[in-house]
Design a protein around this nucleic acid. Structure first.
Lengths: 222, 222
DNA sequence: AATCTATTCAATAAAGTTATTGAATAGTTA
DNA sequence: TAACTATTCAATAACTTTATTGAATAGATT
């Protein structure tokens, strides 16, 4: 094999991986799977795809070895093959947010139009935890919380928050987090909490970003 | 704008960026531009593309804002828009090398078949520099060296190495580096040096990886 | 063994990507 | 102003990607 053939093959393989990520639905699926395992049906529902279409996209990701499967009875659960998949997704996300004005503007405008509150970085949250009083709430669906969450965070899925306000302290600061910077559960939670008189803000990024930094986490499931 | 529209737009924009990278030639162009600025003609030559085809690929990268241009007389020089572009490229490369057996095998087989020598990581090189005696040679074309190189490295482009062996010390260890892990200039250099009785090894990664870590570097050009 | 059910496969039409060709353009030089 | 030259544009044919539909499959349950 000569130099040129070698290069063509290497870049060809890298392009295959890149192509397997280069679709809006597959990017959304990757972000979802960064939260834990999901069946085809669940993935289709979350991403508003038909089952057959979701399955087809999952086959593309599987062929590129970006996801692995885990059969449980009738269901097949998909998960990310390893942390490099999320790392690459994160790099693309950061490239997009920083470089493409459209994305940054989209995020800012959408947030501002509905929830113009402060947000807290992961580093800032770590510092707050060190300094003592902060209550962390995980507002993702419970199934995702069970598969892994920030240490000492309490699970209050967004759709239960209104009923469960009394579980939260009025004095200490509350930080809500969800799937990632594009996830609006945390924004909705902060809006509701602030309106009810609590001192609350959202975590800028999401649980997978926390996990990637190898910060303290807990799992409630086998 | 509702939640779903917001998500569709955000993932749509991220997919556009990903698609702009999802082609073997464009991945090769990005790696080349991580070395510095190049005209369309130079890029076409390095990547074995026709001028028109290279131009078309560059337009795709420009539209996605992954590259910027710099007009100098008749020539238009292209460069990476910022360091996040290389960061994303690196994440894809690492995902490929670690996850896709084909890529890892390709690289290993190609290297082993011709140059079965040890390689040195960036961290190991930093340590060697700290401990004293190591001669670093940059075997990329001189134009790339001039646009930025590892501090104290000497420029000996691969095609001049055979004639310039006497410039190198026989006793102290030599580390050769080039564009990145897929670049074979450094392998060729080590093969030639070892055959001539020198103590040499290659840097695993390339200059852009060194630069990204903000390690000491020098620029010889304005 | 028969039935059930989550998932995958196969076929298809519409839309998008690619390399090639040759013409057009926008700066520079004479 | 005319000629020159590096780059871009436009048109095209071959190929790839996508969502949809309905049938097939493989494993679980009865």
């Amino acid at each position: 094999m000569n130099k040129r053939d070698f290069k063509d093959k290497v870049y060809g393989e890298l392009a295959k991986i890149t192509k397997s990520m280069a679709n809006p639905h597959r990017l959304e699926i990757i972000e979802l799977l960064a939260q834990g395992e999901f069946s085809v049906e669940q993935i289709a529902e979350q991403t508003h795809l038909s089952i057959a279409n979701a399955s087809q996209h999952l086959q593309v990701l599987k062929t590129a070895q970006l996801v692995d499967i885990n059969r449980q009875g009738n269901f097949i659960y998909y998960r990310l093959a390893n942390s490099n998949v999320f790392k690459t997704w994160k790099a693309l996300r950061e490239l997009g947010v920083e470089r493409i004005a459209t994305v940054e503007k989209l995020v800012k405008d959408f947030r501002k139009s509905k929830f113009d509150f402060e947000s807290v970085s992961i580093d800032a949250l770590v510092e707050k935890i060190g300094h003592g009083k902060v209550t962390i709430i995980d507002v993702r669906p419970e199934a995702e919380y069970k598969q892994g969450h920030i240490a000492n965070a309490i699970s209050i899925p967004m759709d239960q928050l209104a009923k469960r306000l009394k579980e939260l302290p009025k004095r200490t600061e509350i930080v809500a987090y969800c799937r990632g910077p594009f996830c609006v559960f945390a924004d909705e939670a902060v809006a509701l909490l602030v309106k009810a008189g609590y001192k609350a803000s959202r975590l800028e990024e999401g649980f997978p970003d926390w996990q990637l930094k190898a910060l303290p986490m807990e799992v409630s499931m086998n």
